[in-house]
Structures are given as C-alpha cells and as structure tokens.
Design a protein around this nucleic acid. Sequence first.
RNA 1: CGGGGUGUAGCGCAGCUUGGUUAGCGCGCCACGUUCGGGACGUGGAGGCCGGGAGUUCAAAUCUCCCCACCCCGACCA
Length: 593
Amino acid sequence: MLRMSTLFVRTLRDDPADAEVASHRLLARAGYIRRVAPGGFSWLPLGWLVFRNLERIVREEMDAAGFQEVHFPALLPREPYEATGRWTEYGDNMFRLQDRRGADFLLAPTHEEMFTLLVKDVYNSYKDLPVSLYQIQTKYRDEARPRAGLLRGREFVMKDSYSFDIDDSGLDASYATHRAAYISLFERLELPYVIVSAMSGAMGGSASEEFLAPMDVGEDTFIRCTSCDFAANVEAVVTPAPRPIAIEGLATAVVHDTPDTPTITTLVDFVNSNGAMRHPDRDWTAADTLKNVVIKLRHPDGTIEPLTIGVPGDRDVDMKRLEAQVAPAEPEPFTEEDFAAHPSLVKGYIGPGVLGTEGTSGIRYLVDPRVVTGTAWITGANQRGNHVINLVAGRDFQPDGTIEAAEIRGGDTCPACGSEVEIARGIELAHIFQLGRQYAEALDLTVQNENGRPVVPTMGSYGVGVSRCLAAIAEVNHDDIGLCWPREIAPADIHLVIAGKESGPQREAAETLAAELEAGGLRVLLDDRVKVSPGVRFKDAELIGVPTIAVAGRGVADETNPTIEVKDRRTGDRKDVPLAEVVTYLREVCASN
RNA sequence: CGGGGUGUAGCGCAGCUUGGUUAGCGCGCCACGUUCGGGACGUGGAGGCCGGGAGUUCAAAUCUCCCCACCCCGACCA
C-alpha cells in the first residue's frame, strides 16, 4: 500500500517554467519525474511505478507474440559499428566516448549490430530460423534539440525487436507478426494511432511503416485522406500522376522576352500583363510554370553530382522529401561557384532545354510526377530575361525520370481514392521496417541451408519508444487539473482520501477499507496525511490521476448508513456507496475498466 | 547552427529602466496553536555567491564587456 504520508513526492502548485507540453508539465507537477539535464529525466516513485507498468505491458505483448527478450549493454565498443559503417555515418547524433586507454566506445542509439552478432554467435542453421529477439533498453542520442519533456529525450527507453528469416516470405511473415503485435499493444494502451507508410531512412530497407499518435504536440508531419483511411508520412507520399495528354494539336512553344523575372511571382505577373503572352481563357498561375531547382548530391563515396529538379512553380522543393528520395546521397546547395562552373545554367532562367543527361549541360533532370507527357509549361529559356511558353513535356523535352520532391499540401489528391488529403501532426510511437540483409552481410552472419551452403538471413527491425509512449499516454489522458491514467498504467487502482479529523471514524474506516482492498488484490494509494486540508487532498488526487478516487468523509459519520464516496477521475461521476458494500463495489469498478 | 527569450531561496515570480538601508512576495518547508469536504488561518522561524568572470563607481541584483546555462521557434532527427 502506498501512503501519501510517506510517499517520496512533492506536488507543485505551479507549472514548472521549463515545461511546455501537457505531459511534461503534469508529470513534473504531480511528482512523477524531475528534469536533470536537457533531454534527461529522473523517475520518482510514482513515475517509476507507471513506467514499470507500461514496460510490463510491452513485455507481455511481445512475449505473447512469441518474441524472446535479451539485454545488451548500452555502452558498446566501436568495432561492430565500424563494420557496418555506422560509426561514421551516424554523425553527431551518436554519443561517443573513450575509455582510459583511449579506445572508442559509444552509447548505443540503436542495437542492430548487437542483435546480428548475437544471432551469429549462437545460431548457424536454417533450422534455427525464424527467430525474433527484443530488448527494452535505454538508448542515447545526442539530439540537436531535445524537447517536450519525455517526448524527445537524449536518454530514453526503447523496446527494439529484430527478426531473422531465411527468405523474403519469412521476413514478410515476421513483419506481419510484429505489426499485429504492435496493433494489439496500442489497442491495449488505448493510444490512438494511425499506421502510415514511411521511408526507412538511414537504416535502409524496404517495407516501412510508422505508428503515429495523431496530436498537435507531435513532431512528425503526415497526411491523411479526408474520406478514405489512407495515411502516409510526407516523405513517403507518392504523387498521383495525371493521365498523359495527346500531343497532337498543342500550341507550339514560343520564346518571349521576359526581362526582370527571376522569380516565379515576377514571372507570373509579367506574362499576365503582357498581351502577347496571355493565356487565351484565363490568368496564368504559378502552377502553370515549371521551376527548375539545381542542387548537388554528395554520394557516400564522396563524389559530387549536380541534379536538376523540375517542380510546378507553385510548389517548393521539400528538403525532407528530397533527402528521403536521394538517400544515402545527401543534397547540398548549388553555389555561385557551381553556377560559374556550369555556364549553360542561367540562374533564374533555367529551362529543360539544356537539362538532362542528353542535354548540353549533361545534368540529370528529374521532374515532379505531375509533369507528364503533353503538359505545357512556362519555364526558363536558358537565356537571361527569356522564358518559353507552351513548352510541352514529351514533345519539347524529355526528363530523365521523376522524383517525389515537391512539397505536399492540404487539399492535394489522395493517392488511394482521389479525394483530398489533409496535413496532420503525430507522435512517432513505433517504427517497423524490413531491414533486409545489409547488417547480416556487413557482419558476416550466415546460416547453413539444406545443402550445407551458407546463406545470409534477412532481418526486420521494430522499435517502440517506451518512455515516449508514456508521455503520449499522459498527453491523451489528462484534463485541466491533472492526469487520468488508464488503469493498467496507473500507479494505483484506488486513491483513498481521508477527509476527516486526525483521529476519527473516517480514518479508522479508511484504514480498514484500504487493508481489505489490498487483500483483494487492488492497489491502494491512501492519503493518510495529517494536518493537510481536504482541499489539498482532493487537488492532489486529481493531479496524480489514479482512475478511481474514494473518499472517506462525512458519509462515514452517518451512523444509520455510513457511506464512502466513489468518484471516477475521468468522468467526474460520483456515487455514495454503503460502507458494507464498498469493497465489492470497488472490485467491480476496477475489473470493468 | 540561425532567430527569440530567460537566469534572483526547493517551485513560481517582483525588484533592474533612474546604482544607495539588512534583496522582496506567493507557494512549499520547520515549530506552536486553531481549523478539518475543495490548494484553511494566526504567531514565530529556517532557507540567497541575485548564472559565472572581468570592469566602471565611494557604492552593482541594477550600468559595461566577455563567457556559461536553460527554454521556445527553425535547421537537424532510428
């Protein structure tokens, strides 16, 4: 039994000044966590209770799915990460340190290498597969900017699983098993979630989905359809391409003098106010223009390649989408010096005429999927002060291919049903993806097949942010005055408040009741403090957020029909229950939610 | 890394513009008493390198310069 009189906690009347989001604010104010460094938190008894409840649930769900728990050090040597290239590729986000002899170590941001090596150590036959292993481990990432309390820390707890299969169909099955296990987990946690298709990012791999809890404090932007159930990370959105248009009969391309029109806005104004260039039926808009953006790609081997991207002029290039498309290469800005080295590129007037590997510039030219054959564009004529109107794709120029780099906007067409999408924010609770064989190959993991030949297993990677989920649960389960935990997560089942004098019938009744409840398997937090006014007890109970609050107060003093008040923290519903029946009643309440 | 903001008691803040008693308020904490169903009241206490350093001055929380830390927005981010 927890007793407020001795519980190591001090609730705060005011919000901590450095806490912005509700979860951080309330967890700090209710005495669950204390910040000790940016992105680093201490857990107090109440916090540790709820954390362990969550951890237990995660563990139960993983075990139920047939995964086996292991545990690695967080402090790891450099060599395995050297072998996979991540010692260098991970960059500033990895905490690195040296031992007294100067040997390099790291605080693991993720554990692919360890799992791969462990399987390599222990298993050597195809008969051993498939296998899925997981751990619940503290991870370290030197985030450029930790924020929002537990939502983005530099030290945080993650449950990460890895599956090992002999072939692709096995990987598909393991992926499906994990996906189902995560659905079961988030349903149990009563966390709202959407599953969005995602890019696997720097980890490599193919199939990839994220579980996002849609809420404004989330940092991930995703789109979802307003009418069907499509949802996707912006980086993974595939733009629906319009149908090609027949080229026959389209107006011929004409070059016009367009002085002082280096930007899309100036260009559109110019062509609308110049009779010869006006559209026959309407005003031109920025969407009629084709903007050609030059960047440089830095490939992993260090080579630099220029690249031109053509997008409709009303859209910017989204750097995140671009990066996801060109990974593992990294985009870099095209500088004045670069323009000087490519005289065929006239800054502000770049057009398809010189672009493409077959063009005079020899620079690869990728366009937005909307630029299909037969579409006509106003675009640069590759001479200062000149643009061309009615330049038709497939007739007047041939791009080298398409690229998903244009920004996504609310109102864009849903790739699944053709309706409109909207932009939303979410917290990334989990990320599952098919890793493939890259880690196994890099670390030389093989097993023997039926013929005694070595084969490289294929892997899947599946992470859940445990401490982040705790914060997300708090975000979803609170109101203006405090937290209201789901029962499985809550630090107790019943918060029993004594509202009476230091010694009196209330205290006696509460002590007896608490003991009976505990004997019946319920977890009780008894507010047995003395010299604390009832108001403080009620406020604290509401702040701490145990789902059921029971009050031993004036109802107890009714000699003919003594009662205990039982209040639902979330709904505020209250009911006076006869003292003789209250144990049964509370058991039922706790069993039903 | 760019922009903005803040550092004064455990927490939340005032004081700084215009330098000048012993640095203040609320909450919390300690002692005694009263109170006991919605963050009670009285009396008396404890608790401060005013983020750090250098300077200006008879005198610096307050003015000047440098540094540091933290928060927010952006960049970045399995």
